[in-house]
Simulated scan of single mutants.
Amino acid sequence: MMKKAGLLLVGVIAAVVLLSNLGSLVGMIISLGILYVAAKKFLQTDSTLGKVIWGIIGFFALSMAVANMPAILGLVAIYILYVIYKKWDEQGKEEADDPFTNFEKQWDELKRS
């Protein structure tokens, strides 16, 4: 029970960190998407003017991505929430598979009868 309380506390903290960094996370996703498109177009174009324009767009997108570095905390919070979710399920399975726990439950039932 104590482990679940600890997992719940860490999960709540991770959720708060995720929500506080949600704006920068969205900004980073958008800027990385623009950077990806700009890099693809930069490599595909043959004209010098096109390369300059796509290079400038790529530079601005890279600047936006760097400005949204707090989004990394949001990504870490997402990973922590994922790990907690997996541990929560494992803990429930361990309790169900433990033969001593099942024996104690059956013993208590026999005592009551």
Rank of each mutant, 00 (worst) to 15 (best):
L19K: 04
S24F: 01
N21T: 04
V37Y: 08
L7R: 07
V12S: 15
G11E: 12
V37M: 07
L8M: 09
V16M: 11
G6T: 15
V10Q: 10
L35I: 09
G6M: 15
L25H: 00
V12H: 04
I34G: 03
V17W: 04
Y36E: 13
Y36T: 08
V17P: 03
S31H: 02
V10S: 12
G33T: 10
L35N: 01
N21L: 01
S24K: 05
Y36R: 08
N21Q: 09
V37L: 12
I29G: 03
A15Y: 05
L25K: 00
S31K: 11
V17H: 02
A14F: 03
A14N: 02
V17A: 06
I34N: 06
L19D: 11
G23W: 02
A14S: 11
M28Y: 06
M28S: 08
L22V: 12
V37Q: 04
G33A: 04
V12A: 12
G27A: 13
S20R: 15
I34L: 14
S20P: 05
V12T: 13
L22R: 07
L9I: 09
L25R: 00
G6D: 12
L18T: 14
G23Q: 09
L8K: 08
V26M: 00
G27F: 10
V16E: 06
I13M: 13
V26F: 00
S31F: 01
G33W: 01
V26S: 05
A14V: 03
V26P: 00
N21I: 01
L19A: 10
V16H: 11
V10N: 08
V26C: 00
I13R: 13
L22K: 05
V12F: 09
I13E: 13
G11T: 05
G23P: 05
I34E: 11
G33F: 07
L22W: 10
L18Q: 09
L25A: 00
G11S: 10
L8S: 04
A15F: 05
I13W: 11
V10E: 14
L8G: 07
V37E: 15
L19W: 07
Y36D: 13
G27Y: 00
V16C: 11
G27T: 08
L35F: 04
L9H: 14
L22D: 06
S24L: 03
L9D: 11
